[in-house]
């Protein structure tokens, strides 16, 4: 069975919010990611998903990530994935989705200043 998905939200400066995702992102847990992170993203201009503790991601997990991307693009929040584990990265690459996400190796690689696509539009 799937391990529980754990989401830890950390507020940062300048409208930044970091969500640490831990556990399996699959059919059983992807709705929770979609629902909860979408809500968090609405109150922030920059959303970072720390994926380092994701142990498995399947097609449903990818679907939730894509839905989140679509949502943040519509609301003007900049979404970044960091520390994506190899299995999840392989899924992103195979599906071509690596081309549509902003992906960084670690939190420190994220540009500090919010010179992203939009501010408070």
């Amino acid at each position: 069975m799937s391990a529980e998905l754990q989401l830890t939200v950390r507020e940062g400066p300048d409208g930044l919010v970091i969500v640490e995702v831990a556990g399996e992102l699959d059919f059983h847990t992807s709705n929770a990611l979609d629902r909860e992170v979408t809500a968090v993203s609405d109150a922030h201009s920059r959303l970072v998903l720390d994926m380092s503790q994701v142990t498995f991601c399947d097609s449903s997990g990818l679907s939730a990530l894509l839905h989140l991307l679509r949502h943040t693009q519509a609301t003007g929040t900049a979404l970044t994935l960091v520390a994506v584990p190899a299995q999840t990265m392989r899924l992103l690459t195979i599906t071509g989705s690596d081309a549509v996400f902003t992906i960084h190796g670690s939190l420190t690689e994220i540009p500090a200043a919010p010179d992203g696509p939009q501010g408070d539009a």
Binding site: L66, I94, T95, G96, S97, A99, V100
Partner: peptide, 13 residues
Amino acid sequence: CRPSHPMGTGLGL
């Protein structure tokens, strides 16, 4: 072959 996006996602690749 360079992948295009999964059908139904509408990612526009």
